[in-house]
Design a protein around this nucleic acid. Sequence first.
RNA 1: GGCGGCAUAGCCAAGUGGUAAGGCAAGGGUCUGCAAAAUCCUCAUCCCCAGUUCGAAUCUGGGUGCCGCCUCCA
Length: 490
Amino acid sequence: MPLTLYNTLTRRKEVFDPIDPHQVQMYYCGVTVYDYCHLGHARACIVWDTVRRYLKWRGYNVRYVQNFTDIDDKILNRARQEGTSMEAVAEFYIQAYFEDMARLNVMEADEYPRATHTIDGIKRLIHELEQNGNAYPTAGDVYYSVRSFPGYGKLSGQKLDEMQTGASGRVEATHEANQPQKRDPADFALWKSAKPDEPAWESPWGAGRPGWHIECSAMVRECFADASGKRLGDTIDIHAGGNDLIFPHHENEIAQSEAVTGKPLSRYWMHNGMVNVGGEKMSKSLGNFTTIRDLLDRKGIDPMVIRLFVLGASYRKPIDFTDEALTAAQNGWNTLKEGLLFGYEYGDRLEWHDREDAQTSILEQFQTAMDDDFNTSSGLAVLFEIAKALQREGNLLVHQGKTDAPPDTLKQQWQTLIELAQVLGLEAKPEDPTSTNGLSDAAIETEIQRRRDAKIVKNFAEADRIRNELQAQGITLIDKPGGETLWHRS
RNA sequence: GGCGGCAUAGCCAAGUGGUAAGGCAAGGGUCUGCAAAAUCCUCAUCCCCAGUUCGAAUCUGGGUGCCGCCUCCA
């Protein structure tokens, strides 16, 4: 069974067929660094991280490049507000980004190009566009002429003549008046002349800064060259990003790159759905966002719960962020975690020795699910089945002191679960055993004896009080038939 | 106005022609002083209408509702 994925460009699921059968070139349009990342960004990062992990598990080497947009009006505004520089703001939020993503277990990209580090490549590309007649300078600005590129609109399915400029209501009334030199309302800026007090770079068109879309075209070109400088980046395999980037951003990238190279910029265009709140897209401008830090630190959510929340849905569909959904993910993670910790908790006791290989039939089941356009929801069902079984065996060991399941089988199941969870970036680490809580074993035994005495005289109120008190301190009691009481720290 | 997408139980979510995965939650039985654990059982004909078909949640046509994009966006 081949791996298939949905290609926005063709609006179909297609068999994945990379240019080099061993090496996948993947570019993810990353974030503009002017604030902390919110759950919407987290979703995108987790989704593409998972795609990357799965491709690796499937046997491909993946070159994964993700950009930072560090030239932008919003960064500039922030810098003005805080009385600092654009560089300082960008640097601060890039570091914050790295911290957040490490916690979410998002693997580091192979390269993180930044707009400010790509100025030469950007200028080169604009120059080539100009020479080809796709770009025109006016009064210090340079615009891309959308009418000069016949394929304009092929990604988003838009036709220039049917597009309604300004339909989103976001273009200010004065906007057009400020850009009288544009030949067509749909033309977009490749280079913007410097305004006073703004960071600027020298260029053949005067001091200025690059427009938004051009950076990605330049970065793809530069980041996928081999050691000898031979360009691999004319066409890459996968170009990914949020579906809010399809138009205009990715459409414009195609126009810029393909006008110069005459080759497809990317074979596959993949787009993740948005995170919604109350049916509306989570976004900075609506103010309905929750930052990753807020979830992790203020609400104390386990990062893996966020991964599970994200992977529970198809990456292309919108997901609604609600307390209920979060609770469900939380509970679900508890089950998976118990499964993932099974080997650490009971491995010694079950006298596991030799390494068992993962269970092929289950791996195949998982692969079938994921091969269908990265169907993580179906894939997770495979993990839950194993985790549930291990959770059950773990409980039997704790409560009955034994299990009838063969240790080898359990080990095999466990290793299968660990392997698959890793593909989804889900990991659970055993608790640090040094952080045991206050009560000594002897003190616990004393309390249990007192409770036993209370039970003998049928003083159940007192017995329950002692049990509750221990439970509050993380000690769980288990009454066995015959009056014996087991206990364990939770 | 244009383009794209979605509609499956209380909630989330798979399934894309052969009789509804999985998760979360809920209810009940056994066991237990009560719990815990285990175990058993219950919990949807898939937005509506009309077609195609031996057979449709799945295909076709027509509705209805919701969402995203149309130069800030993951």
